[in-house]
């Protein structure tokens, strides 16, 4: 537990003259859930993509403590190693489940893809694991052979989570996992995520604009504005006693129920 699982140092990315994120540094420890909050356009998703190796940052380093090869610089890895890492030790949950799923094949095939990608060749076992994961994300196992096109939004999101977790990853990146879902479905998915994160000892980097989600799921919070981190700290501390004017504004703008 003495080494951080993921550490970013001075990560920055610009698109032409526009700065998407600047000089972001943090450590993520095993079992920790880190929230990145901020308004639209504040650079949250760009940062997440830089961390997950999907975008190459202009500056800074991202170091990951891998299960197999020790400490690795994510952006210095060969493409083959990085992709292997991404489909074995990492997960990535998109806001839009259609981006993270294969919509043309059944739920079972979606969950089984990572297993087959690392060499599983026994249909019965793959199917058994897929069924097991359907149960763990609370989808009726009867729907195992149905395509995600026939699923509701909430079910698709749960399927996407199962598809990512089947390879037993240590680190999951989530980009607004509950965005675009209605409130009751959101609550169930948050519940599910909280259980999975604790049960599997997952580390999570979670991007959200919803402070309620951040409060429920995350241990620590980074607040971004205009591409820079303006405040970070323990979630309860940041939300209950915001220091930066922008954070104060964010917290104050939560609609009272």
């Amino acid at each position: 537990m003495s080494v951080p699982l993921l550490s970013a140092r001075g990560v920055g990315k610009r698109f032409g003259g526009r700065i998407a994120c600047r000089d972001v540094s943090f450590d993520l420890w095993p079992g920790e859930v880190l929230g990145i909050v901020g308004e639209s356009g504040s650079g949250k998703t760009t940062l997440l993509n830089c961390l997950a190796g999907r975008l190459v940052p202009d500056g800074g380093t991202v170091t990951y403590e891998s299960r197999s090869a020790g400490s690795v610089d994510v952006h210095r890895l060969s493409e083959a190693r990085r992709r292997l890492l991404a489909r074995t030790e990492w997960g990535f949950v998109n806001q839009d489940a259609r981006e993270g799923l294969r919509m043309g094949v059944s739920a079972g095939a979606n969950i089984g893809e990572r297993l087959m990608a690392v060499g599983a060749r026994h249909y019965g076992e793959i199917r058994g694991q897929a069924a097991d994961w359907m149960g763990r994300v609370e989808i009726d196992v009867e729907r195992l052979d149905d395509r995600p096109t026939t699923y509701s939004g909430g079910m698709r999101q749960r399927l996407q989570i199962a598809r990512n977790l089947v390879s037993n990853p240590r680190l999951v990146f989530m980009d607004e996992p509950t965005g675009g879902l209605d409130v009751s479905v959101q609550a169930r998915i948050l519940d599910l995520l909280r259980g999975l994160v604790e049960g599997l000892h997952l580390s999570v980097v979670l991007v959200t604009h919803d402070l309620g989600v951040a409060r429920l799921l995350t241990h620590r919070l980074m607040v971004m504005q205009g591409g820079t981190v303006v405040e970070q700290g323990l979630t309860d501390q940041v939300l209950d006693d915001p220091q930066h004017p922008y954070t104060q504004m964010l917290v104050a703008s939560i609609l009272p129920v």
Binding site: R87, R102, V105, G108, A109, G112, E113, R114, M116, A117, V118, R121, Y123, I126, R127
Partner: peptide
């Protein structure tokens, strides 16, 4: 993996 997915 994706080829195997199609057979699955």
């Amino acid at each position: 993996g994706v080829m195997q997915v199609s057979l699955y």
